[in-house]
Write a protein that binds this DNA or RNA. Structure first.
Lengths: 197, 197
DNA sequence: ACCTGAACACCGTTCAAGT
DNA sequence: ACCTGAACACCGTTCAAGT
Protein backbone atom coordinates (compact mmCIF):
# COMPACT_ATOMS: atom_id res chain seq x y z
CA UNK A 1 0.00 0.00 0.00
CA UNK A 2 1.35 3.36 -1.03
CA UNK A 3 0.34 7.02 -0.72
CA UNK A 4 -3.42 7.40 -0.82
CA UNK A 5 -6.11 9.97 -0.33
CA UNK A 6 -8.81 7.40 -0.31
CA UNK A 7 -10.24 8.76 2.91
CA UNK A 8 -10.51 12.12 4.61
CA UNK A 9 -9.17 12.65 8.10
CA UNK A 10 -12.70 12.35 9.44
CA UNK A 11 -13.29 9.11 7.58
CA UNK A 12 -10.09 7.57 8.92
CA UNK A 13 -11.09 8.69 12.39
CA UNK A 14 -14.47 7.04 12.08
CA UNK A 15 -13.01 3.83 10.67
CA UNK A 16 -10.45 3.65 13.47
CA UNK A 17 -13.08 4.14 16.18
CA UNK A 18 -15.38 1.53 14.66
CA UNK A 19 -12.50 -0.96 14.39
CA UNK A 20 -11.45 -0.20 17.97
CA UNK A 21 -14.97 -0.75 19.23
CA UNK A 22 -15.10 -4.13 17.52
CA UNK A 23 -11.75 -5.18 18.98
CA UNK A 24 -12.83 -4.17 22.50
CA UNK A 25 -16.21 -5.91 22.13
CA UNK A 26 -14.61 -9.13 20.88
CA UNK A 27 -11.37 -9.33 22.82
CA UNK A 28 -11.45 -6.73 25.60
CA UNK A 29 -9.51 -3.54 26.24
CA UNK A 30 -6.10 -5.21 26.80
CA UNK A 31 -6.30 -6.50 23.20
CA UNK A 32 -6.69 -2.98 21.83
CA UNK A 33 -3.35 -1.95 20.33
CA UNK A 34 -2.42 0.71 17.81
CA UNK A 35 -1.00 -1.87 15.40
CA UNK A 36 -4.15 -3.96 15.53
CA UNK A 37 -6.39 -0.98 14.81
CA UNK A 38 -4.12 0.15 11.99
CA UNK A 39 -4.17 -3.29 10.41
CA UNK A 40 -7.96 -3.47 10.65
CA UNK A 41 -8.40 -0.25 8.68
CA UNK A 42 -5.58 -0.81 6.20
CA UNK A 43 -3.30 2.01 7.33
CA UNK A 44 -0.06 2.04 9.29
CA UNK A 45 0.31 3.03 12.96
CA UNK A 46 1.77 6.39 12.08
CA UNK A 47 -1.52 7.42 10.50
CA UNK A 48 -3.37 6.94 13.80
CA UNK A 49 -1.13 9.60 15.35
CA UNK A 50 -2.16 12.03 12.63
CA UNK A 51 -5.78 11.66 13.71
CA UNK A 52 -5.56 10.98 17.46
CA UNK A 53 -3.32 12.52 20.08
CA UNK A 54 -2.36 9.09 21.37
CA UNK A 55 -3.92 5.77 22.39
CA UNK A 56 -5.43 7.24 25.55
CA UNK A 57 -7.24 9.81 23.44
CA UNK A 58 -8.55 7.09 21.13
CA UNK A 59 -9.72 4.92 24.05
CA UNK A 60 -11.49 7.90 25.58
CA UNK A 61 -13.41 8.36 22.33
CA UNK A 62 -14.38 4.69 22.29
CA UNK A 63 -15.49 4.85 25.91
CA UNK A 64 -17.39 8.05 25.20
CA UNK A 65 -19.41 6.18 22.60
CA UNK A 66 -20.12 3.42 25.10
CA UNK A 67 -21.33 5.97 27.65
CA UNK A 68 -23.71 7.42 25.05
CA UNK A 69 -24.96 3.96 24.21
CA UNK A 70 -25.42 3.13 27.89
CA UNK A 71 -27.26 6.38 28.51
CA UNK A 72 -29.68 5.63 25.69
CA UNK A 73 -30.29 2.09 26.98
CA UNK A 74 -30.98 3.37 30.50
CA UNK A 75 -33.33 6.12 29.35
CA UNK A 76 -35.30 3.55 27.45
CA UNK A 77 -35.40 1.13 30.40
CA UNK A 78 -36.65 3.88 32.70
CA UNK A 79 -39.34 5.10 30.31
CA UNK A 80 -40.66 1.60 29.85
CA UNK A 81 -41.49 1.32 33.56
CA UNK A 82 -44.28 3.12 35.44
CA UNK A 83 -43.13 6.19 37.39
CA UNK A 84 -42.33 5.62 41.05
CA UNK A 85 -40.07 3.11 42.82
CA UNK A 86 -40.57 0.60 40.01
CA UNK A 87 -38.87 3.01 37.65
CA UNK A 88 -35.80 3.24 39.90
CA UNK A 89 -35.65 -0.52 39.97
CA UNK A 90 -36.00 -0.71 36.19
CA UNK A 91 -33.11 1.72 35.84
CA UNK A 92 -30.92 -0.35 38.15
CA UNK A 93 -31.81 -3.60 36.43
CA UNK A 94 -31.18 -1.94 33.10
CA UNK A 95 -27.66 -1.06 34.24
CA UNK A 96 -26.94 -4.62 35.33
CA UNK A 97 -28.30 -5.96 32.05
CA UNK A 98 -26.20 -3.58 30.01
CA UNK A 99 -23.08 -4.46 31.98
CA UNK A 100 -23.72 -8.13 31.23
CA UNK A 101 -24.77 -7.81 27.60
CA UNK A 102 -21.88 -5.48 26.71
CA UNK A 103 -19.53 -6.65 29.36
CA UNK A 104 -16.23 -6.14 27.56
CA UNK A 105 -17.16 -2.67 26.36
CA UNK A 106 -18.63 -1.78 29.74
CA UNK A 107 -15.56 -3.07 31.56
CA UNK A 108 -13.30 -1.00 29.32
CA UNK A 109 -14.96 2.05 30.86
CA UNK A 110 -13.35 1.22 34.20
CA UNK A 111 -10.25 -0.66 33.15
CA UNK A 112 -8.77 2.31 31.36
CA UNK A 113 -6.72 4.69 33.46
CA UNK A 114 -5.43 8.03 32.31
CA UNK A 115 -1.78 8.83 33.18
CA UNK A 116 -1.31 9.83 36.84
CA UNK A 117 -2.87 13.13 37.73
CA UNK A 118 -4.50 13.68 34.34
CA UNK A 119 -8.19 14.48 34.79
CA UNK A 120 -10.94 13.43 32.39
CA UNK A 121 -11.53 15.97 29.63
CA UNK A 122 -14.65 18.08 30.21
CA UNK A 123 -16.68 16.46 27.45
CA UNK A 124 -16.05 13.06 29.05
CA UNK A 125 -16.84 14.25 32.56
CA UNK A 126 -20.13 15.59 31.21
CA UNK A 127 -21.07 12.14 29.95
CA UNK A 128 -20.44 10.65 33.40
CA UNK A 129 -22.45 13.41 35.04
CA UNK A 130 -25.33 12.78 32.62
CA UNK A 131 -25.64 9.27 34.05
CA UNK A 132 -26.19 10.63 37.54
CA UNK A 133 -28.62 13.24 36.19
CA UNK A 134 -30.72 10.43 34.79
CA UNK A 135 -30.98 8.87 38.24
CA UNK A 136 -31.77 12.22 39.83
CA UNK A 137 -34.63 12.74 37.39
CA UNK A 138 -36.18 9.40 38.28
CA UNK A 139 -35.63 9.88 42.02
CA UNK A 140 -37.02 13.41 42.04
CA UNK A 141 -40.45 12.12 41.02
CA UNK A 142 -40.56 9.98 44.14
CA UNK A 143 -40.87 12.63 46.82
CA UNK A 144 -40.94 16.37 46.31
CA UNK A 145 -39.97 17.43 49.79
CA UNK A 146 -36.21 16.96 49.39
CA UNK A 147 -33.88 19.77 48.40
CA UNK A 148 -31.42 19.65 45.52
CA UNK A 149 -28.47 18.64 47.67
CA UNK A 150 -30.30 15.66 49.17
CA UNK A 151 -31.28 14.59 45.68
CA UNK A 152 -27.70 14.82 44.44
CA UNK A 153 -26.46 12.72 47.32
CA UNK A 154 -29.24 10.15 47.10
CA UNK A 155 -28.80 9.71 43.36
CA UNK A 156 -25.03 9.27 43.66
CA UNK A 157 -25.15 7.02 46.70
CA UNK A 158 -27.73 4.72 45.18
CA UNK A 159 -26.18 4.68 41.74
CA UNK A 160 -22.66 4.13 42.99
CA UNK A 161 -24.10 1.27 45.01
CA UNK A 162 -25.71 -0.33 41.98
CA UNK A 163 -22.47 0.20 40.08
CA UNK A 164 -20.52 -1.56 42.81
CA UNK A 165 -22.71 -4.63 42.50
CA UNK A 166 -22.35 -4.64 38.72
CA UNK A 167 -18.60 -4.34 38.78
CA UNK A 168 -18.07 -7.04 41.40
CA UNK A 169 -20.46 -9.23 39.42
CA UNK A 170 -18.68 -8.63 36.13
CA UNK A 171 -15.28 -9.35 37.65
CA UNK A 172 -16.60 -12.52 39.32
CA UNK A 173 -15.95 -11.40 42.85
CA UNK A 174 -19.48 -11.99 44.12
CA UNK A 175 -19.33 -15.76 44.38
CA UNK A 176 -22.51 -17.78 43.88
CA UNK A 177 -24.95 -14.96 44.69
CA UNK A 178 -27.33 -13.61 42.05
CA UNK A 179 -26.43 -10.01 41.29
CA UNK A 180 -30.03 -9.19 40.46
CA UNK A 181 -31.09 -10.12 44.00
CA UNK A 182 -28.44 -7.75 45.31
CA UNK A 183 -29.58 -4.91 43.07
CA UNK A 184 -33.20 -5.42 44.15
CA UNK A 185 -32.21 -5.57 47.81
CA UNK A 186 -30.13 -2.42 47.57
CA UNK A 187 -32.72 -0.37 45.70
CA UNK A 188 -35.71 -1.47 47.77
CA UNK A 189 -34.12 -1.03 51.14
CA UNK A 190 -32.42 2.23 50.24
CA UNK A 191 -35.67 3.73 48.96
CA UNK A 192 -37.61 2.45 51.96
CA UNK A 193 -35.02 3.98 54.23
CA UNK A 194 -35.22 7.30 52.37
CA UNK A 195 -38.96 7.40 52.82
CA UNK A 196 -38.76 6.54 56.49
CA UNK A 197 -36.08 9.19 57.02
CA UNK B 1 26.75 -9.94 39.05
CA UNK B 2 27.52 -13.61 38.62
CA UNK B 3 26.26 -16.93 39.97
CA UNK B 4 25.23 -16.62 43.58
CA UNK B 5 23.52 -18.55 46.30
CA UNK B 6 23.17 -15.52 48.47
CA UNK B 7 19.50 -16.15 48.97
CA UNK B 8 17.19 -19.13 49.14
CA UNK B 9 14.21 -19.42 46.84
CA UNK B 10 11.96 -18.29 49.68
CA UNK B 11 14.15 -15.28 50.37
CA UNK B 12 14.11 -14.21 46.74
CA UNK B 13 10.37 -14.64 46.71
CA UNK B 14 9.97 -12.43 49.76
CA UNK B 15 12.33 -9.78 48.38
CA UNK B 16 10.47 -9.71 45.06
CA UNK B 17 7.08 -9.34 46.73
CA UNK B 18 8.33 -6.57 49.00
CA UNK B 19 9.87 -4.73 46.05
CA UNK B 20 6.69 -5.18 44.01
CA UNK B 21 4.58 -3.81 46.85
CA UNK B 22 6.77 -0.72 47.04
CA UNK B 23 6.58 -0.14 43.29
CA UNK B 24 2.79 -0.45 43.31
CA UNK B 25 2.47 1.82 46.35
CA UNK B 26 4.71 4.48 44.82
CA UNK B 27 3.89 4.31 41.13
CA UNK B 28 0.77 2.20 40.67
CA UNK B 29 0.15 -1.19 39.10
CA UNK B 30 0.94 -0.13 35.50
CA UNK B 31 4.48 0.68 36.65
CA UNK B 32 5.00 -2.84 37.94
CA UNK B 33 7.20 -4.69 35.43
CA UNK B 34 9.33 -7.79 35.74
CA UNK B 35 12.48 -5.87 34.82
CA UNK B 36 11.82 -3.23 37.45
CA UNK B 37 11.29 -5.80 40.18
CA UNK B 38 14.39 -7.71 39.13
CA UNK B 39 16.51 -4.58 39.22
CA UNK B 40 15.19 -3.65 42.66
CA UNK B 41 16.31 -6.97 44.15
CA UNK B 42 19.58 -7.29 42.21
CA UNK B 43 18.63 -10.31 40.11
CA UNK B 44 17.76 -10.68 36.43
CA UNK B 45 14.26 -11.20 35.06
CA UNK B 46 14.85 -14.88 34.43
CA UNK B 47 15.16 -15.48 38.16
CA UNK B 48 11.64 -14.22 38.77
CA UNK B 49 10.34 -17.01 36.56
CA UNK B 50 12.13 -19.55 38.72
CA UNK B 51 10.13 -18.36 41.71
CA UNK B 52 6.80 -17.23 40.21
CA UNK B 53 4.72 -18.81 37.49
CA UNK B 54 4.44 -15.48 35.69
CA UNK B 55 3.65 -11.81 36.37
CA UNK B 56 -0.04 -12.53 36.98
CA UNK B 57 0.92 -14.97 39.71
CA UNK B 58 3.21 -12.39 41.30
CA UNK B 59 0.54 -9.67 41.15
CA UNK B 60 -1.97 -12.03 42.73
CA UNK B 61 0.43 -12.55 45.64
CA UNK B 62 0.87 -8.80 46.05
CA UNK B 63 -2.89 -8.26 45.96
CA UNK B 64 -3.38 -11.11 48.41
CA UNK B 65 -1.19 -9.27 50.89
CA UNK B 66 -3.22 -6.11 50.36
CA UNK B 67 -6.43 -8.02 51.03
CA UNK B 68 -4.96 -9.33 54.29
CA UNK B 69 -3.89 -5.84 55.25
CA UNK B 70 -7.33 -4.45 54.39
CA UNK B 71 -9.06 -7.19 56.37
CA UNK B 72 -7.00 -6.36 59.44
CA UNK B 73 -7.72 -2.65 59.11
CA UNK B 74 -11.45 -3.29 58.80
CA UNK B 75 -11.56 -5.68 61.76
CA UNK B 76 -9.88 -3.06 63.86
CA UNK B 77 -12.23 -0.29 62.67
CA UNK B 78 -15.26 -2.42 63.49
CA UNK B 79 -14.06 -3.43 66.94
CA UNK B 80 -13.34 0.16 67.85
CA UNK B 81 -17.02 1.10 67.41
CA UNK B 82 -19.94 0.13 69.65
CA UNK B 83 -21.98 -2.81 68.38
CA UNK B 84 -25.08 -1.93 66.37
CA UNK B 85 -25.62 0.33 63.35
CA UNK B 86 -22.66 2.50 64.38
CA UNK B 87 -20.40 -0.48 63.84
CA UNK B 88 -21.64 -0.98 60.29
CA UNK B 89 -20.96 2.65 59.62
CA UNK B 90 -17.48 2.39 61.12
CA UNK B 91 -16.76 -0.57 58.86
CA UNK B 92 -17.89 1.35 55.78
CA UNK B 93 -15.93 4.45 56.71
CA UNK B 94 -12.93 2.27 57.42
CA UNK B 95 -13.15 0.91 53.89
CA UNK B 96 -13.28 4.37 52.36
CA UNK B 97 -10.36 5.49 54.52
CA UNK B 98 -8.28 2.49 53.52
CA UNK B 99 -9.05 3.05 49.84
CA UNK B 100 -7.84 6.61 50.19
CA UNK B 101 -4.80 6.01 52.39
CA UNK B 102 -3.55 3.08 50.27
CA UNK B 103 -5.14 4.15 47.06
CA UNK B 104 -2.58 2.79 44.60
CA UNK B 105 -2.38 -0.58 46.35
CA UNK B 106 -6.15 -0.71 46.74
CA UNK B 107 -6.69 0.21 43.11
CA UNK B 108 -4.33 -2.53 42.00
CA UNK B 109 -6.85 -4.98 43.48
CA UNK B 110 -9.35 -4.03 40.78
CA UNK B 111 -7.08 -2.92 37.94
CA UNK B 112 -5.53 -6.33 37.56
CA UNK B 113 -7.35 -8.75 35.29
CA UNK B 114 -6.51 -12.41 34.91
CA UNK B 115 -6.42 -13.74 31.32
CA UNK B 116 -9.90 -14.30 29.84
CA UNK B 117 -11.81 -17.12 31.46
CA UNK B 118 -9.23 -17.79 34.14
CA UNK B 119 -10.87 -17.81 37.58
CA UNK B 120 -9.23 -16.59 40.78
CA UNK B 121 -7.29 -19.34 42.59
CA UNK B 122 -9.14 -20.71 45.61
CA UNK B 123 -6.86 -19.12 48.18
CA UNK B 124 -7.53 -15.72 46.61
CA UNK B 125 -11.29 -16.26 46.40
CA UNK B 126 -11.23 -17.13 50.08
CA UNK B 127 -9.68 -13.76 50.90
CA UNK B 128 -12.44 -11.96 48.99
CA UNK B 129 -15.09 -14.05 50.74
CA UNK B 130 -13.54 -13.22 54.12
CA UNK B 131 -14.32 -9.56 53.47
CA UNK B 132 -18.00 -10.31 53.07
CA UNK B 133 -17.94 -12.56 56.11
CA UNK B 134 -16.72 -9.62 58.16
CA UNK B 135 -19.74 -7.61 57.07
CA UNK B 136 -22.09 -10.50 57.77
CA UNK B 137 -20.74 -10.79 61.30
CA UNK B 138 -21.40 -7.13 62.01
CA UNK B 139 -24.82 -7.20 60.36
CA UNK B 140 -25.92 -10.34 62.15
CA UNK B 141 -25.73 -8.60 65.51
CA UNK B 142 -28.30 -6.07 64.30
CA UNK B 143 -31.37 -8.24 64.10
CA UNK B 144 -31.63 -11.92 64.88
CA UNK B 145 -34.79 -12.68 63.00
CA UNK B 146 -33.26 -12.97 59.53
CA UNK B 147 -32.16 -16.26 58.05
CA UNK B 148 -28.73 -17.01 56.63
CA UNK B 149 -29.68 -16.28 53.03
CA UNK B 150 -31.06 -12.84 53.87
CA UNK B 151 -27.90 -12.08 55.76
CA UNK B 152 -25.71 -13.15 52.84
CA UNK B 153 -27.65 -10.96 50.47
CA UNK B 154 -27.78 -7.97 52.77
CA UNK B 155 -24.05 -8.13 53.51
CA UNK B 156 -23.15 -8.37 49.81
CA UNK B 157 -25.62 -5.75 48.64
CA UNK B 158 -24.51 -3.23 51.23
CA UNK B 159 -20.83 -3.96 50.88
CA UNK B 160 -20.85 -3.91 47.09
CA UNK B 161 -22.62 -0.58 47.40
CA UNK B 162 -19.96 0.86 49.66
CA UNK B 163 -17.34 -0.53 47.31
CA UNK B 164 -18.99 1.21 44.36
CA UNK B 165 -18.76 4.55 46.10
CA UNK B 166 -15.11 3.98 46.99
CA UNK B 167 -14.13 3.00 43.48
CA UNK B 168 -15.91 5.88 41.77
CA UNK B 169 -14.34 8.18 44.36
CA UNK B 170 -10.86 6.81 43.83
CA UNK B 171 -11.15 7.10 40.05
CA UNK B 172 -12.50 10.66 40.31
CA UNK B 173 -15.83 9.93 38.72
CA UNK B 174 -17.94 11.33 41.56
CA UNK B 175 -17.43 15.00 40.83
CA UNK B 176 -17.51 17.49 43.69
CA UNK B 177 -19.51 15.30 46.08
CA UNK B 178 -18.00 14.10 49.36
CA UNK B 179 -17.69 10.32 49.25
CA UNK B 180 -18.13 10.08 53.00
CA UNK B 181 -21.59 11.68 52.73
CA UNK B 182 -22.48 9.05 50.15
CA UNK B 183 -21.25 6.20 52.33
CA UNK B 184 -23.22 7.53 55.30
CA UNK B 185 -26.34 7.98 53.19
CA UNK B 186 -26.10 4.50 51.75
CA UNK B 187 -25.49 2.74 55.05
CA UNK B 188 -28.10 4.65 57.03
CA UNK B 189 -30.88 4.38 54.52
CA UNK B 190 -30.16 0.77 53.67
CA UNK B 191 -30.19 -0.25 57.34
CA UNK B 192 -33.32 1.76 58.03
CA UNK B 193 -34.99 0.09 55.06
CA UNK B 194 -33.93 -3.34 56.31
CA UNK B 195 -35.45 -2.66 59.71
CA UNK B 196 -38.67 -1.37 58.22
CA UNK B 197 -38.88 -4.40 55.91
C1' DA C 1 22.20 -26.22 40.85
C1' DC C 2 21.56 -21.61 40.26
C1' DC C 3 21.37 -17.72 37.60
C1' DT C 4 22.39 -15.05 33.49
C1' DG C 5 21.73 -12.66 29.31
C1' DA C 6 20.35 -12.78 24.93
C1' DA C 7 16.58 -13.78 22.07
C1' DC C 8 11.62 -13.65 20.48
C1' DA C 9 7.45 -11.51 19.66
C1' DC C 10 5.36 -7.97 21.02
C1' DC C 11 4.22 -2.76 22.84
C1' DG C 12 3.42 3.09 22.18
C1' DT C 13 5.32 6.79 19.88
C1' DT C 14 8.09 9.62 16.60
C1' DC C 15 9.72 11.32 12.35
C1' DA C 16 12.78 11.37 8.20
C1' DA C 17 11.85 9.88 3.80
C1' DG C 18 9.08 8.68 -0.10
C1' DT C 19 5.24 9.66 -3.56
C1' DA D 1 0.09 16.96 1.60
C1' DC D 2 -0.44 12.51 3.02
C1' DC D 3 1.24 8.38 4.54
C1' DT D 4 4.90 5.02 5.26
C1' DG D 5 8.15 2.23 7.53
C1' DA D 6 11.89 2.01 10.20
C1' DA D 7 13.64 3.28 14.52
C1' DC D 8 13.66 3.90 19.71
C1' DA D 9 12.81 2.51 24.18
C1' DC D 10 10.22 -0.35 26.20
C1' DC D 11 7.20 -4.95 27.43
C1' DG D 12 6.49 -10.59 29.20
C1' DT D 13 8.49 -14.86 28.66
C1' DT D 14 11.83 -18.60 27.50
C1' DC D 15 15.95 -21.19 27.59
C1' DA D 16 20.72 -22.38 26.04
C1' DA D 17 24.86 -21.36 28.10
C1' DG D 18 27.95 -20.17 31.77
C1' DT D 19 29.89 -20.82 36.61
Amino acid sequence: MARRSDHSREEIRGMALAAAETIVANAGLPALTARRIAQAIGYTVGTLYLVFENLDDLILQVNGRTLDDLHAALSQAAEAAPAGPARVEALARGYLEYARAQHRRWNALFLHQLPAGQPFPDWYGAKIAAMFTLVEAVLSSLSTKRDARDLTIAARALWSGVHGICILDSTRRLGPVAAQDLVDSLVRNYLRGLEAG
